[in-house]
Design a protein around this nucleic acid. Structure first.
Lengths: 155, 155
DNA sequence: TTGATATAGATGCAATTGCATGAAAAATCA
DNA sequence: TGATTTTTCATGCAATTGCATCTATATCAA
């Protein structure tokens, strides 16, 4: 092993990781720019609302949102407050758990999902998918699916 | 095409993108936790210092750092100030450009790179590479290299 | 039960980020 | 040259994030 491999961040795994990080950040930023330009809130709002829509009864406990979005607890707590303040969801006291809250998707939230989707989809197409062949997209997706299955609980 | 494919974020490119984003975030967070636990600053400090070390004369203009790290201009400006305040680099007036600044790596900054590297490398190994075969890492890396070459200037 | 521990969620405060803008020098152009 | 535009970098202010901690309820063990 050369000296470079010991002291410099150029091992193959680090390089792969750096590319993963860089690609993800670059694309995220560009997608966010397009959402904002279209007058929409950040992608994290979409993620939360989408989880609500997918959920049984269109509602989830904050702790469930936390697990599904991988946001930190305090960020979920405050993000929910913002989404609720904007009228896209509402908070109700949990009936089963006295500590808990239940976040419910409002019709306005469903509308928002419907309206954001084409912009979101198009942005991902333009900033990401258009630069890969279909085979590359599939391969990438499969490798990442496998990776994620090993490192996270949900999804 | 089914209704679901029109209205729901489940097209193959979106799914691939979501996995990319999720994997990157999850791993980044865990790597950051390990760096912090070892008493080190965030990865962004490492990135900046590393770019300085790679650069001719161990120094760069902020605008160059911006291009290489993909950080926003105002974030570069303030990140540099923090790094300088911590004694890892210093700012000098640019000789060629009256508007400009030159950020120079200090010996303390080089030391920091050397000390952070094994922790960083190990964290990436544990949180990322250990969950992929060598072939998967290579494939992933190549696809992302190709993608990045199309969407960013530098690297 | 009761006492100890764990879980759910909120929040004060400090640090960081994003936005908008400013100042200064350079580059361009009429 | 002088005016205009562009580039470089900094910064005030608002929004968001991270950290630490708090309250309340639930769970568990004796």
């Amino acid at each position: 092993m050369t000296k470079a491999n010991v002291e410099n961040p150029n091992s193959a795994p680090i390089e792969a990781w750096a590319r993963l990080h860089r690609a993800s950040n670059t694309i995220l930023e560009r997608v966010e720019v397009k959402l904002k330009a279209a007058g929409f809130p950040p992608l994290s709002w979409y993620d939360v609302l989408l989880e609500l829509r997918k959920a049984e009864g269109h509602s989830l406990r904050p702790v469930e949102i936390e697990k599904r979005t991988l946001l930190a607890q305090y960020n979920v707590s405050r993000l929910i407050d913002r989404i609720v303040a904007a009228g896209y969801a509402e908070k109700r006291k949990s009936s089963e758990d006295g500590r808990g809250v239940r976040v419910c998707l409002c019709p306005e939230g469903e509308d928002l999902l419907v309206k954001m989707w084409p912009i979101y989809r198009q942005a991902v197409q333009t900033e990401f998918a258009d630069h890969l062949s279909q085979g590359e997209t599939e391969t990438l997706s499969l490798i990442l699916k496998n990776l994620l299955s090993q490192i996270v609980e949900v999804k």
